[in-house]
Write a protein that binds this DNA or RNA. Structure first.
Length: 907
RNA sequence: GCCUGGGUGGCGGAAUUGGUAUACGCAGUCGACUUAAAAUCGAUCGCCCCUCGAGGGCUUGUGGGUUCGACUCCCACCCCGGGCACCA
């Protein structure tokens, strides 16, 4: 075989990339067509993959993400949409800074190098990006507007400064957001986080908890991602109830509010517990015999690592305060405790304890010999699974004799703690016997009347801590003035540019603090000497609005214009890793809602549809340098070409699931592409071109070197001109591509035509459900059929089959598909509308019908498409192997599923 | 513990509405081409039994159920991955 017959991606791919770059094929304009006239403008589609963090080189996960996104972008274009498909870089962040600490290389330089590498790779992969909209979040022209947004939030009271117990990473020497703490460890470096009391900047995301929750219903996201967000927001309905303490000074009672989801169990509250961090604990014991023990306990609790403290099976520890509070529903004085199972950061930092109906309170009561009073019946024999079936209203006998009454010797009553539903008991005559759910509402109403409590909702979500004591981030545009306090930097002075510094090493405060000349500034308000905020912003702030900037990337007067956003937002299809299910996706949603409230946006959700891709593993394990199992996309592209790499990563399995990389699998896909190339080459060589426009393969190098830059091929302005999807404006079926209704009708021609239309139908459906693996398999089947019939089918049918294969494969293997399509048709495949399956060719006049006896497959017969059920029965009954199984037996029932099967039930 | 996603040949996976289980690819086996190898092309390929052939039995984590028919629906359970986890 001559060299000419070899599939050579290294020759093909750069050629097409050069063409697309020179013609700026994937750029889209914002403006509406000037002379739109009556022409309807094509629908817009915003396809976006999460922007990469540029560190080193792209890894295989990037390849997967952008292969998925590019396939969708191409598909939408060829459906006639104007597609916005931009790219940028999430360029601030710790790795570049840590690298700088080690090597002294400025983060800007290492980041630039990495960005260059990403750009090279994305081009080498042939991803169809509108490069005219590119930016990095570290560029002043971008972060100027990040700062602007911060100031908007500040002015609206949504950004505020507060001292609080915050999570501190001792390794990275910075505070972290709650979301960045995973199992008590820093999400980035894995160091165990500490708690520090610091004054920091927060964004008031909790104001949006309810809307972040309810608006999930309106977006098309994977259910598990929605669930993760719901869990993270953690909404609980209940009541806030006041417990009064008069122990210190009866004239000046102290009211302690607690949050409970179970106000129906209030009568069972037998003690009261405060978190060790609660500010009143020491005051309550000051000067008493309990003070020493309490102090010791608190010290111990606070120095314990988060990990130790939150261990689930940890015994419940705590000490008595020697004080009491009044249970508001029955006036009982109940003892107060301090215990570390109560968390300061949730609710009010204090709880009422109902040991009979809460597992934790129960464990504490047992450990400290406290009374346990059952106030809800039910639960039955302990340990037995829920007896839903017997549904007896009367408490099972274990539940009844609980009436050792108040002083009750806390013993081990069976069935407790009971957390289910049931009628109230031992509470109050008004509520006893009432179902607990009804009682809950009644008790809350009564408390409300008495001014002792009210219905309340609590969220697990905390405000977003955005200060970072690090260098390589967006400066917070705030000035501190002795006289004026916290002063925002005036808008016209933005951006506050990140200064160059000598020493990046973090020392517990921002390295920026050492840039004395930068820190010193005149107060924008009074003009007196003041100093700049030296913390930078969490990089998740940068990435919470970048998708807006793509819509209007060069706007110098505003972060965006509403008109630009109106054309594209919200993102129609967002694509990224599931690891961002909470952090990035929650923050971006919050930003949209807040900015919409401030009148800057006209929509409330940024991402209408979300697709989360699975991880790529090697030998079943996550790829990592330490494991030595990293597959670098660059090496694969170099060896097999980008088309193979992209197709393989999509073919290996459903893209939303994890996939294990196999070198042999890559070979298989590469062989497939080579076969398509070769077969197409043969057919093109054999001539037989039918269309008027397609004399010879035009040799796909239409762009002379050096002609790049000038968009000469694209006439100015008009939004369609640079639009790949523009072809649909003047729809035209390639005249030379047979449709099956004309030309040859030999059996082989028909078979091939049918297979091609089957593949069109199959791939079209698969594209819409992200089933790229089966889409590629369908093209493989089409190629197999063409290959089988290559010596017998008419050339024209082969040409159609192969051109169709190329057309369908284009979203996954754009270079090869363009090459093959052009050779066969003389046309640019990306300018062709997505092919349509001819329904007539999806039908067959006869088909195989399955014959079952008692549900077991016994034979197959051919039947005419329009055969009646009676005819089908007769056909099957006559099948030899069916006869063998029904002869001499009694046919009880006959089931006919036209188009599928006949089943005889015999006895 | 709660919430999730999953479990199908030697391997990755397919089966979209309850209707032919194992598409497509990999690996394997045999053959063609070749001096040879690579590449390419063709055949074969779930397991077991019988075997001249035709055939028969079994098989989608386990055990039940519904149905003429179950990878698919229901009940119970086992295993693996992800998320949350003393949230009152």
């Amino acid at each position: 075989m001559s060299d000419e017959h070899r599939y050579d991606p290294q020759e093909i791919e750069p050629r097409w990339q050069a063409l697309w770059a020179a013609e700026r094929t994937w750029e889209v304009a914002n403006e509406a067509p000037e002379r739109a006239g009556s022409e309807r403008r094509p629908p817009a589609s915003y396809v976006l993959e999460m922007l990469p963090y540029p560190s080193g080189e792209p890894h295989i996960g990037h390849l997967k993400c952008y292969a998925v996104g590019d396939a969708i972008a191409h598909f939408h274009r060829r459906l006639g949409h104007r597609v916005l498909h931009p790219m940028g870089y999430d360029a601030f962040g710790l790795p570049a800074e840590n690298h700088a600490i080690k090597t002294g290389v400025h983060p800007r330089d290492s980041t630039a190098a990495s960005i260059a590498s990403f750009q090279r790779q994305f081009r080498a992969w042939g991803i169809s990006i509108d490069w005219s909209r590119e930016f990095g979040t570290h560029e002043p022209r971008y972060y100027r507007w990040t700062q602007w947004i911060f100031l908007q939030l500040f002015q609206a009271g949504l950004a505020y400064r507060k001292e609080a117990a915050v999570k501190w990473c001792p390794h990275d020497q910075t505070v972290l957001a709650n979301e960045q703490v995973v199992d008590g460890h820093c999400e980035r470096c894995g160091a165990e986080v500490e708690v520090r009391q610091l004054e920091q900047w927060f964004l008031r995301i909790t104001d949006y908890a309810e809307r972040l929750l309810t608006d999930l219903d309106g977006i098309e996201w994977p259910e598990h991602v929605k669930t993760m967000q719901r869990n993270w927001i953690g909404r609980s309905e209940g009541a806030e109830v006041t417990f009064r303490c008069t122990d210190l000074d009866p004239a000046q009672p102290i009211d302690y509010r607690v949050f409970t989801t179970r106000p129906d169990t209030l009568f069972g509250a037998t003690f009261f517990v405060m978190a060790p961090e609660h500010p009143d604990v020491l005051r309550l014991v000051a000067g008493t015999e309990h003070e020493a023990a309490v102090r010791e306990y608190i010290n111990h609790a606070l120095t314990e690592s988060g990990e130790e403290r939150s261990a689930v099976d940890k015994p419940k520890t705590g000490v008595a305060l020697g004080r009491t509070v009044t249970n508001p529903v029955n006036g009982e004085q109940i003892p107060m405790y301090v215990a570390d199972y109560v968390l300061m950061e949730y609710g009010t930092g204090a709880i009422m304890a109902v040991p009979a109906h809460d597992e934790r309170d129960h464990a504490f009561a047992r450990a400290h010999d406290l009374p346990i009073r059952r106030v809800i019946e039910g639960g039955a024999e302990d340990g037995l699974p829920e007896n839903a079936e017997d549904g007896l209203p009367e408490g099972a006998e274990e539940g009844l004799p609980e009436n050792a009454e108040d002083g009750l010797p806390n013993g081990a009553e069976q069935g407790l703690p009971y957390t289910g539903d049931g009628p109230l008991t031992s509470s109050d005559e008004r509520f006893d016997g009432m179902n607990n759910r009804a009682a809950l509402a009644a008790i809350v109403a009564w408390l409300d009347e008495q001014g002792k409590g009210h219905a309340s909702v609590n969220y697990r979500l905390r405000d977003w801590l955005v200060s970072r004591q690090r260098y390589w981030g967006c400066p917070i545009p705030i000035v501190y003035c002795e006289r004026c306090g916290i002063v925002p930097v005036p808008e016209e002075q933005l951006p506050v540019v990140l200064p160059d510094i000598e020493d990046y090493a973090p020392r517990g405060r921002s390295p920026l603090a050492a840039a004395a000349a930068w820190v010193a500034v005149d107060c924008p308000s009074c003009g007196e000497p003041a100093r700049r905020e030296t913390d930078t912003m969490d990089t998740f702030v940068d990435s919470s609005w970048y998708f807006l900037r793509y819509c209007d990337p060069t706007n110098e007067r505003a972060p965006w214009s509403k008109e630009a956003l109106a054309q594209w937002m919200p993102v129609d299809q967002y694509i990224g890793g599931v690891e961002h299910a909470i952090l990035h996706l929650l923050y971006a949603r919050f930003f949209c809602k807040a900015l919409a409230d401030l009148g800057h946006l006209d929509f409330k959700e940024p991402f209408q549809a979300l697709f989360t891709q699975g991880m790529v593993t090697k030998d079943g394990a996550k790829m990592s340098k330490s494991r030595g199992n990293v597959v670098s996309p660059a090496s694969i592209v170099e060896r097999y070409g980008a088309d193979t790499a992209r197709c393989y990563i999509l073919f290996v399995g459903p893209p939303d699931q994890d996939a294990d990389w196999s070198d042999d699998g890559v070979e298989g896909v590469h062989r497939f592409l080579g076969r398509l190339w070769r077969l197409a080459h043969e057919v093109a060589q054999a001539g037989g071109t039918a269309g008027p426009q397609t004399a010879e393969p035009s040799g796909a190098a239409p762009v002379a070197e050096g002609s790049g830059g000038e968009p000469h091929a694209a006439p100015p302005a008009g939004p369609y001109t640079a639009l790949p999807g523009a072809a649909h404006v003047r729809p035209r079926r390639s005249a030379h591509v047979p449709t099956g209704t004309d030309t040859d009708t030999s059996d082989d021609a028909l078979a091939l035509l049918r297979k091609a239309h089957w593949a069109i139908d199959k791939v079209s459906g698969d594209m819409r459900r992200f089933a790229f693996n089966t889409a590629i398999a369908a093209v493989m089947e089409l190629l197999n059929e063409a290959s089988r019939l290559r010596d017998t089918a008419p050339l024209e049918a082969q040409r159609f089959a192969l051109a169709t294969a190329a057309s369908l494969l284009f979203p996954f293997a754009p270079h090869l598909a363009s090459e093959v399509y052009e050779r066969l048709t003389g046309e640019r495949v990306w300018e062709q509308p997505w092919p349509q399956a001819d329904p007539a060719l999806l039908e067959r006049e006869s088909y195989e019908i399955v014959c079952q006896v008692n549900g077991k497959l016994r034979d197959r017969v051919r039947a005419a498409r329009d055969a009646s059920p009676e005819e089908l029965k007769e056909l099957c009954r006559a099948a030899p192997n069916v006869r063998a199984h029904i002869d001499g037996k009694h046919v009880v029932k006959e089931i006919v599923v036209p188009g599928k099967l006949v089943n005889f039930v015999v006895r």
